[in-house]
Design a protein around this nucleic acid. Structure first.
Lengths: 115, 115
DNA sequence: CTAGGACTTGAAGTAATGATGAAGTCAATG
DNA sequence: CATTGACTTCATCATTACTTCAAGTCCTAG
């Protein structure tokens, strides 16, 4: 289970190694270190990265994602996932509303120039 | 009519002077020059900038907006505005679809981690 | 004509999100 | 134990969309 290297987490999560290190620096994931100073992640890490990537599609920045994941305990329970899910959903819906508002501004009879 | 300075276009369009100069460098707007090498825009410029800002809300980059505005002749006709409007609308709808797809991935019974 | 504000350029800075490269270290294998 | 691939850090580059700065020029009002 635990004890994945950077490369393994990268493969499992579908991002590059440099991204994995970047995400650790940013606090999205945490790693233990071997005697030789190499990172060792537990399986949880790839999972958090996949969540992070969905959050990015929704439009969250890495900083926002850090805050989002900060409330997620290690070994999260269903309720924890539900909370994340709800927050991401709310955010996605907010962005959709913004886009609809832009659409309304674009349309609505007024010529673009008179916005 | 014609002959607005950077500052005047900035006030009319609601962006900063440095942004106006930036947009000119990027080809979103064009300017004539006085004998003393100062920019003089026509009223069209502030208009184009307002369009550009709507396009940014939709998620277009400045480069994409340049291409969008490139097809807009000086003194555009209703059909020209309609074309812009259609392209922006299509783009906004595409982004909305992407967000809905993300929402579907988030929901749909699968836990976030198994995406 | 002069003072002042508005303008000019070019370079450099900023923030976000990494990619890439150099130089060196670790770990598993034959 | 030597090789080799994966790892380490630190630095630098890239992109996007601007902002800020310095040093100098223009233009308009008085």
């Amino acid at each position: 289970m635990g004890a994945l290297t950077v490369g393994e987490v990268a493969r499992e999560s579908g991002v590059s190694g440099s991204a994995v290190r970047f995400y650790e620096r940013q606090g999205l994931i945490t790693a233990a270190r071997t005697g030789g100073n190499q990172r060792r992640f537990d399986g949880d890490a790839a999972c958090r990265i996949r969540v992070a990537r969905v959050a990015q599609r929704v439009g969250l920045t890495v900083n926002e994602i850090r805050d989002l994941l900060a409330v997620l305990p290690p070994d999260p329970q269903p309720a924890d996932w539900q909370g994340l899910h709800d927050r991401l959903t709310a955010e996605a819906e907010r962005r959709i509303r913004d886009l609809h508002a832009a659409l309304d501004d674009i349309g609505s009879g007024r010529r673009l120039c008179e916005l």
